[in-house]
C-alpha cells in the first residue's frame, strides 16, 4: 500500500464570517476513480495500537486510512464492491475494527459489515441484511438499527455485535404504521430511540422491551424532517431536526436546522430555535451532521455552513471551491475535526474551535 496522500493544501479557505474558527490541517486524496460518497472517522486497532483512522467511501471502494506523523494518511485496507454501489458509511459506536456500509442505488438495498481477518489481515465483508431498507443508524453499545419493508410489513430491527464484531444478536421493535425515515439516539436515556416518519411524526421506542411508546406529531411547516440529535432534560425531549424540503423564506432566511422541544407525556411540542443562514447567503440543506453543540451542513449552493447550537447562529462558512462543490460533511467521532469531502475524492480535514 502506498502513501497516497498528501500535503497540506492552501485551499479552500474559510471565508470572512469567522475565519478563526476553521483551520485546514490536512488533505486526503482518495485515489479511486469513482465518485466519492462519504467519509467517517473511527478507531482501528493494529498490533495492539488503537489509532483514530479515517474511512472514505467511493461508489465501489471503501478505504481505511491510518494517521502518519505530520497530518498525513496512509491507506491500509481497501474493500471492493462489484454489483451495488456504496451509498453511505454507517459507523457503529463502541465497535473497534468494524464498520458498516449501506449499498444501493437510490434506496438502500444491502447492509454490509467490513472488517479484517484476524488470521491473515485480509479485508473481509459480510452481508448483514438485504431488501428494501429505508433507514439505518449505528447505536451505542455495539448496536445497529434499521427499518425495512413496505408499510404493511415494515420491520424495525436491532442487531447487536459481539465485542470483536462477530456473533450478532437480533431483536425487533414494534413498527409504527408509517415509514420510518431516520433514527436518533436520545442522550441521557440509553434505552430510548427516536424515529422520524414520512407523516411528520416523531416516534419513540423502548430499546429494551421493543415497545413503541409514543407517536408525536410535529409542525407541518416542514415535511420529511431528518432527526440529527435528541436529548432528554427536565422531563422534556429536545430534538435537532433538519429540513431538506424547507422553502426559503424572505423573513426568516433559510432554516437549515431547527431545535424543537416535546413533552413526551402530552405530545405537545413547540419550536425553540431556527438555525438559518446569515444574510446574503442562499441555499437549502442537502446533508449534514450534528455532534455535541455543533451542526454542519452542505447546502444546495455548494457551500458548507457551521452553527453553534448554543449561540444559535452560523459561525463559519466554507464556500465552494471553483468548479468543485462540497458534497458531504461529517464531524470526526475521534476528535473535534470536521471532515469535508468533494465528489472527486478530495477530503479536507479542518480543526474547528
Amino acid at each position: 500500500h502506498s502513501i497516497e496522500q498528501t500535503e497540506i493544501a492552501d485551499l479552500p479557505a474559510c471565508d470572512s464570517l469567522n475565519p478563526g474558527n476553521l483551520q485546514l490541517v490536512s488533505k486526503l486524496k482518495n485515489p479511486s476513480g469513482s465518485c466519492s460518497v462519504d467519509v467517517s472517522a473511527m478507531w482501528w486497532e493494529r498490533a495492539g495500537l488503537k489509532e483514530p483512522c479515517i474511512i472514505t467511501a467511493c461508489e465501489y471502494v471503501v478505504s481505511l486510512w491510518k494517521p502518519l506523523d505530520t497530518w498525513q494518511w496512509k491507506n491500509i485496507y481497501t474493500w471492493h464492491f462489484t454489483e451495488v454501489p456504496v451509498l453511505q458509511i454507517v459507523p457503529v459506536p463502541d465497535v473497534c475494527n468494524l464498520v458498516c456500509v449501506a449499498l444501493g442505488n437510490l434506496e438502500i438495498r444491502e447492509l454490509r459489515a467490513l472488517f479484517c481477518s484476524p488470521d491473515d489481515g485480509s479485508e473481509k465483508q459480510v452481508l448483514l441484511k438485504s431488501g428494501n431498507i429505508k433507514a439505518v443508524l449505528g447505536l451505542t453499545k455495539r448496536r445497529l438499527v434499521n427499518s425495512s419493508g413496505t408499510l404493511c410489513d415494515q420491520q424495525v430491527e436491532i442487531m447487536t455485535f459481539a465485542e470483536d464484531g462477530g456473533n450478532k444478536e437480533k431483536q425487533f421493535l414494534m413498527p409504527p404504521e408509517e415509514t420510518v425515515l431516520t433514527f436518533a439516539e436520545v442522550q441521557g436515556l440509553q434505552e430510548a430511540l427516536l424515529g422520524t416518519t414520512v407523516m411528520n411524526n416523531i416516534v419513540i421506542w423502548n430499546l429494551k422491551t421493543g415497545q413503541l411508546l409514543k407517536k408525536m406529531h410535529i409542525d407541518d411547516s416542514y415535511q420529511a424532517s431528518v432527526c440529527h440529535k435528541a436529548y432528554s432534560e427536565m422531563g422534556l425531549l429536545f430534538v435537532i431536526l433538519s429540513h431538506p424540503c424547507a422553502k426559503e423564506s424572505e423573513s426568516l432566511g433559510s432554516p437549515v436546522f431547527q431545535l424543537i422541544v416535546i413533552n413526551p407525556k402530552t405530545t405537545l411540542n413547540v419550536g425553540v430555535m431556527l438555525y438559518c443562514l446569515p444574510p446574503g447567503q442562499a441555499g437549502r440543506f442537502l446533508e449534514g451532521d450534528v455532534k455535541d453543540d455543533r451542526a454542519a451542513a452542505v447546502l444546495t449552493s455548494g457551500a458548507v455552513a457551521i452553527w453553534d447550537l448554543l449561540l444559535g447562529h452560523c459561525t463559519a462558512l466554507l464556500p465552494p471551491v471553483p468548479d468543485q462543490n462540497w458534497s458531504f460533511v461529517k464531524w470526526s467521532g475521534t476528535d473535534s475535526h470536521l471532515l469535508a469531502g468533494q465528489k472527486d475524492g478530495n477530503i479536507f480535514v479542518y480543526r474547528y474551535s
Binding site: 415497545q211 413503541l212 411508546l213 409514543k214 422531563g235 413533552n263 413526551p264 407525556k265 405537545l268 413547540v270
Partner: peptide, 23 residues
C-alpha cells in the same frame, strides 16, 4: 417558549410511557 404550552411535565416520562404502552 413557555413551558405551560406543553402541558404537565413528568421527569419519569420514559418509565411511565413504558408501563402504559402495550408490550
Amino acid at each position: 417558549c413557555n413551558k405551560a404550552d406543553l402541558g404537565p411535565i413528568s421527569l419519569n416520562w420514559f418509565e411511565e410511557l413504558s408501563s402504559e404502552a402495550p408490550p
